[in-house]
Amino acid sequence: MKRQAAELGRIRTGYSRPNSDPTKRPVPIKSKTFVFSSHSQAYVAAAAELWGGHVEAWTPQNQKISQYRVISTATEIRAILPAGDPLSQSYEMWSGGGCSRRCDGETEQLTRKPCVCLAQYGIDWHLRSPQQVCRPTSRINVMLPDLPDLGVWRLESKSYYAADAIAGGLDIVLQATEGRSMMPVRMWIEQRTAVREGKTKQFPVVMVVPSLPKLRHALSGPLSTAAALDPGVLDRPAIEAPRPDYAADAKACTTVDAAREVWHRANRAGHVARDGSDPLSQELRQIADDIAKGIDTTTGVDAGDDDFSDGPDDDGVYDVEVLDDEPPVDAGASWPAVAAPGAGARS
């Protein structure tokens, strides 16, 4: 089964009012503001407090279970797209018995037969009335961070034009996040017109675009949860991490090569001058010289000056490690030339 978050409610772009003739169906109204509905009165009340409007009991058409809804005053809302692909689209036909057709434009999914609308009316079948053919149905799940509880709100549109606009906006989001993180979005209802067969048609389109301070933020890859909740964090100055104690790291080394690597690490971080003229480079060079001479870099005592003051043990053995004689190490030859004062920059 497909895993999905709990659906807390619906976001709609229309509602209906009673018909003056009680024998006829209610009159559908295209809303210029968002409509929120839910089985939970608390969710709808929170939406009304945030976006305006009055909470009312409401029963959807062809249903018997009462819900709650609010026709808000908001033409724009902020939301978060969850990870994954939050959009589903198909051509659907509904009747009193439920969904009778669900098609991708080529194959009817319920019967696995070729598209019925295409077979009956040809390639211009989409110009037919909704009573004759399937309607393009777009469903998108979003999270509303300023409302209670963890879950999604489903926005559903049956507009042919909205289907293109929503899909285009979501494609940009998915390219930016690869579906691996949440993305803050801005949603608004845009009124549009189109001329078909000499007639001007007005229709609302829900626009969904990434809500970020700059376009480059939408193209920089997956975002953190903090950025999804507050896109402003993307433009806040970063807190500089504390600088490592390079001198302490070098003193903990036992070889000149290891001490030299500490300088290279500081150089890559931009914490020392490339020509080695800065005080830190000088200090690291001195530590490398001490290591080469056998001086304990933590105490400054020459290991060769040990007077064995502790004396031998009961067996006449001194508590020291005896090493074979080795030629002295030239720290200057092992140290990077760039770290020597006055040396030229590395090529």
Results as ranks from 00 to 15, higher is better:
V185E: 08
K201M: 12
D164E: 14
D149N: 13
K158W: 03
M207S: 12
E178D: 13
R186P: 01
G221P: 04
V185P: 10
Q175W: 05
A162W: 00
P184V: 02
T193F: 02
A176S: 15
T200R: 14
R186W: 00
L147R: 08
T200C: 01
A163L: 02
I189P: 09
Y161L: 12
A165M: 12
G169Q: 08
S159A: 08
V152G: 04
V152A: 01
K158S: 09
I189V: 14
S220P: 01
V185L: 10
M183H: 07
G151H: 06
L215M: 07
G168A: 12
K214N: 11
K214V: 05
L155G: 08
L215N: 00
R196S: 11
H217N: 08
S181H: 10
I166P: 06
L219P: 00
S181N: 06
F203W: 11
Y160D: 09
A167W: 03
L219C: 09
F203G: 06
E178L: 13
R154C: 14
R192Y: 00
L170D: 01
I172V: 15
S224N: 01
I189M: 12
M183E: 13
R154Q: 14
M187Y: 11
T225G: 02
S211L: 14
S220R: 10
G221W: 04
V152P: 03
P184T: 06
Q175M: 12
M207R: 15
P210Q: 06
V205M: 07
V206H: 04
E190T: 05
A167Q: 13
V152W: 03
T177A: 08
G169S: 09
K199I: 13
P184G: 00
K214C: 00
V152F: 02
P222C: 06
I166C: 05
L147S: 08
D164N: 13
D164I: 04
G198S: 04
E197V: 03
L170P: 08
T200M: 10
S159E: 05
Q202F: 10
M187W: 08
